[in-house]
Design a binder for these strands. Structure first.
Lengths: 195, 195, 195, 195
DNA sequence: CATGAATGAGGGTTCATTCAT
DNA sequence: AATGAATGAACCCTCATTCAT
């Protein structure tokens, strides 16, 4: 008889929203953003189309929330809040975390790549990523300079591209790509840590 | 006027088809596959929707033809039809051609990436790529083995990933990515050619 | 606390209902009936959608109640409960009240017009109005006849139309229409009162 | 076999567009803009929903085209392209045309009023009407000044309001309102023409 | 008395595809 | 070979109303 308390409502909301979020994430990753209809998402989340709009403003907002949540996860991982200098240990951590994320969040990264190349969507996300990218490049350039490499900017770019390429290949073929071997190779080559 | 010969008709046919092909290519690359309507394509090709269906079975068929043609171009470039051994000069050619293609066919590669990650389309194309990929890996592995590297398979994979990463970064940011510098770096590092 | 008496409950009920009524009125007038959602009304009334349906059977019922209440107000104003003869003083009162109402209830009249012309709604209200209209016409006809005009029915109709036209113009442009001037003009012309 | 000529297409378009236009007009006038769905319009025009969008950009565009076409008709009627002075004969013409239009385009005017009071739509149309309105007021003011009335602006406003009120009453009750009588009354009173 | 999560029918709109000409 | 009018299914989204609590 008594109306539900605010917390009760909050819980219901949180749970349902998560359900829809997960359903959308799965479908976007499995079948692509454009091929996934709101109807499909609602069906997979065992709910109604209408309710989806109680939680997300639009299909695009739902997508952005998914992407954004992945970004935030990543930023937490890579922002050690430090002095601006990348030590060998930090580089090691960085790479370990990266490879770990690729393995555990495989689904997200595949979706992310799929979205990234959608010409229309690209611009929406790009600015958010640009900052992270620039920051990382600065760190890497300093890192390579500190280790005496001749053209640290170029090295940083090549290193970044290599990481991208590895991520990209692994994500598209997680079963075939020997990610562990590659990880060891990269760590051994770029961490300059003596045993 | 004399009635047109069969070849003339054939030429007209081919030209019109090419026009549609180009229009679709441009639009897919510029605005994405899903955002490009048949009407837009026909308009840009200065023709009618009906005619388009004379040349292509469906919108998806048109897309696949575009992708496939790009693939074939690439295969021609990278299939030297040789003895299975990659010489230093061949490697140099390989890389030169690759970078050249990235620069001149930027448009295609961006579309290609956009499509590649569409989960549904991916499977369709993937098998065609798998062959090329395997062949190239074999060549590269031999190449690195021949130059005395300890783990040539791993080196080949890393090299492949690096190339992918560079292509990917350049294609998404052709104006900012210093492709020439990177090209020199790569050639200098992997071609083992002494001056 | 002592349990609330029945009247107290009744008062709460009435107050809440009034709040919803006002909120709906404002929104209908400001944004139109169809553009105003139940959610918006509930939000503006600081209550819930569910409660709204405790007081009003449906959105349409809410609308009709608003319109009806305005009608009643007007009827009270114009029904002097008299002998069927309109004296000059009564005519003066009539006009004063009318112009006063236009100025103070501007909001209502605009809504009323907006609704009035909705073909579907029109029929619903029209019968209620027909009575008032007929009664007023009778009064006016007698009035003009009594003052010696040749075709009193026609004069009554023209007078009624003029009043409608003024109301209509003022309501749609309250800031620009010089209602006071027009009021003086009308009173001077139709009240036949000598100073 | 040969494709249709441009004229053939043009004819088909013109006819079909007119059909849809009429269907929409009828329904908007009968049931109101918001209560008329695209589906209903298409059904009444014996066509498909999709086709409607071949001819009209949106439901709102369709509405505006209907309103606009009525406006244009009216402007042609009332714009004698003259010297800025309204003679008695011109005033007579003006009024005759007006009453004629009310009678023949009854449907349009009812729709027009219905739309006019939709709060959202009002602004869209208003600017287009404002010009005509201002122009007419100027003409009328001069007209009354020329005939020696003391406060010509006020007279013009009152005259305008009266016309509005008559139109409004007639349009809402075409069967009961004695438009012919009123017309004679108005002409006799405001045309200052001696027999 | 009070809440807002949940529904589902229907809204306007788009677009690949077909087909009469 | 060539046209674009016509279709209809599916799209995303809105919202009055219900109901468990």
């Amino acid at each position: 008889m008594a109306p539900r308390t605010k917390e009760q409502f909050e819980n219901i909301r949180e749970e349902k929203k998560q359900l829809i979020f997960e359903a959308a994430f799965d479908l976007f990753a499995l079948e692509g953003y454009h091929s996934t209809s709101i109807t499909k998402i609602a069906k997979r989340a065992n709910t109604s189309k209408g309710l989806l709009y109680n939680y997300f403003e639009s299909k695009e907002a739902l997508l952005l929330e998914i992407l954004s949540s992945g970004l935030n996860e990543m930023m937490q991982l890579f922002d050690p809040n430090h002095d601006g200098i990348l030590s060998e240990e930090e580089m090691l951590n960085f790479l370990s975390n990266l490879f770990e994320m690729l393995k555990t969040n495989n689904r997200y990264w595949r979706l992310y790549y799929a979205i990234f190349f959608q010409p229309t969507v690209f611009e929406l996300i790009n600015t958010q990523f640009a900052d992270i990218f620039t920051k990382m490049m600065k760190l890497l350039t300093d890192y390579f300079a500190h280790h005496g490499l001749q053209e640290p900017e170029k090295e940083a770019l090549v290193f970044g591209s290599l990481i991208d390429g590895i991520a990209f290949n692994y994500v598209m073929n997680p079963d075939l790509y020997p990610i562990e071997d590659i990880k060891d190779y990269i760590i051994h080559k770029f961490c300059y840590i003596k045993k």
